[in-house]
Amino acid sequence: MAETASDEELVRERFRQLRATGDPALRDKIIIDHAWIPRTVARRFDQRGESFDDLAQVGSLGLVKAVDRFDPDMGTNFVSFAMPTVVGEVRRYFRDHTWSVRVPRSAKELKPLITKAIEQLQHETGRSPTVAEIAEHLQLDADTVLEAMEAAAAYRTSSLDAPTRDSDRSNDSHRGLAQNDRDLGRMVDATAIRQLLETLPGRSRMILYLRFFEHMSQAEIAEHVGTSQVHVGRLLKAGLEQLRQQIDPDDLTEFV
């Protein structure tokens, strides 16, 4: 569905109007007019077993980004501009293993590993190890090891403070999504999470992906996926809960 030269100029004109007025209805129209781009890209990537819908969703995220970024006076036409962005989004989603639910290697996680490493190295060398030796042993960089060893128990407690045992754990709405996010962030193994994410049904998976990988707010996700924010909240909570239940306690070093 190529655009003729006059089509291109029309599109550029619309963009100029959009930049001038910020009209959301106009923005939507431009997006809908170009919805064929993410669909085309999704079709191209679809053979690898991902669902077409998912890919199209992800691709349309790229489209939206392109719409928001495109400068009509730069001389390019919009389709040429948007295509790489859309392809990039889908590729990123694909890189499978980078649903990096940003798992920070917190000091609390590392400490037991470091303790074990020290014991082992002490046994091997007959003396206490150096920071560099510990780092080498754990395949971490020395700064990370040093920081973990120096991390203050007081700091860790205050930043990871969860509701006490007395609070009602089933009343998750009370804790808010931020707390759930922190819980998720404390899980150890990003690979395990990726595998778990794949067990979720498409919609939930998409929403969790958008939340943790694209760092979108619930409102943004709702707009993107085409549903209400309340529904997104519910799906996020349900998805997180499902993940929580499936996690093998042995895979975790620390979990509320």
Partner: peptide, 20 residues
């Protein structure tokens, strides 16, 4: 109480110190 160095609680009749 707690500050940048330490957190002190009383738990089951014992003083529990965390930190420095």
């Amino acid at each position: 109480g707690r500050n940048e160095s330490i957190r002190v609680t009383i738990d089951k009749g014992a003083v529990v110190a965390e930190g420095d």
